[in-house]
Amino acid sequence: MGSSSGSVQHLVMLGIILLATNPFGVQAKTLSIHKLEKLVQEEDYLHSRLRIAEFQENVLKVSWDLNLRRKLDNDWMVEFKVSRSEDGDGGYERIMLFEVHLCDFMKTYYKDFFYQRIKEYSNAPRPSTCPLPKEHYRLEDYPLDVRVLKKLMTPGHYRIKYKLKNDESVILSYMAEVEVD
Rank of each mutant, 00 (worst) to 15 (best):
A124D: 02
P143F: 04
K119G: 12
R147S: 06
L139Q: 05
P155R: 08
T108C: 11
K119E: 10
E140W: 05
T154M: 10
P155Y: 03
H157V: 14
R117T: 09
S128L: 10
Y121I: 03
K111R: 12
Y158A: 06
Y109W: 01
R147L: 11
L132D: 03
T129L: 08
P125Y: 04
S128P: 04
Y121N: 10
T129H: 04
V148M: 14
R159E: 13
Y142M: 07
P125T: 09
Y121L: 12
F114P: 03
F114V: 13
D141G: 11
M153Q: 02
V148P: 05
L132R: 03
Y142S: 03
L139S: 03
C130H: 02
R126I: 13
L132F: 06
R117I: 10
K150Q: 13
D145P: 01
L139W: 00
K151D: 11
F114I: 11
R138S: 11
K134S: 12
V146R: 01
K150C: 07
T154I: 14
Y109M: 10
P143V: 05
T154G: 02
V146Y: 00
Y142D: 04
I160E: 00
K119R: 15
K134H: 15
K119M: 10
Y137M: 14
K150R: 15
K150L: 05
K161M: 10
T154W: 12
N123T: 14
I160C: 01
T129C: 05
R126S: 15
H136Q: 13
T108Q: 10
R117W: 02
N123F: 01
T154E: 10
P143Y: 03
S122A: 14
I118H: 02
H157G: 08
R147C: 08
H136W: 04
R117Y: 12
E120I: 11
D112M: 04
C130T: 07
R147T: 11
K134L: 08
V148A: 09
V148C: 04
P127T: 09
R126V: 15
G156I: 08
P127N: 09
Y142P: 00
C130V: 07
R159W: 06
P131N: 09
Y109K: 07
P131V: 07
P143C: 06
